[in-house]
Amino acid sequence: MYQWDFGILWSYRWLFLNGLGVTVGFTVVIVVCGLLCGLIAAFGSLSRFKAVRTLALIFIEAFRCTPILVQLIWFYYALPILAGVEMTPITASALALSLYGGSFYSEIIRGGIVSIDRGQSEAGAALGMTPRQTMTRIVLPQAIKRMIPALMNQSIIQFKNTSLVSVLAVPDLVYQSQVAAHDSYRPLETYTAVAVAYAAILIPLTILVRRGEKRMAVSE
């Protein structure tokens, strides 16, 4: 019978906290960059010009339809050879995760924009608004409201995906716990603690999202 001993983890607390800091910081970066990239790709996929639409589509499908773990490894090992640019593990993984997240965000954003009734942009146009004014004043404010639950959901996935950067030796929570597990010979306790740490951050967030959804349903 296995004897659980969580007490042993206490001596690694600074290591864990350090890793957690990297994980959270990394998530903030890839969520912000991913949203930006998703916004650009979404507008690209709705462009009047076919070339732009095609380009956006190629980007979206390339990143949506390949595994993130493969992308991470590819960005760190293959891209430097192809493009001749040297990248730190942090840059490579931030880039890969932002683009990967961006491909999913862009589909959420595009879906939100096209879900707004055509009559809304017609009404804007009839008032004399330019397409840009119609987008920023009329369509986006309504579309963003509809996108928020899905965007939050994708961001939660992004948060968990940061655990994969440990394969490139980025010192996130998972990487640090590997160190602790090897050092303490207590992998079961360590990984249980990691799972609890992820859940402890995400569950309050999901409650927040659910509450937001309910509030939005009321105002519609």
Partner: peptide, 18 residues
């Protein structure tokens, strides 16, 4: 846009900004 600003239009389904 400038042209449309001088013509008002009312739609069947109102198209108010919700």
């Amino acid at each position: 846009a400038r042209f449309r600003a001088t013509t008002g239009m009312v739609f069947q389904h109102f198209n108010l900004f919700p």
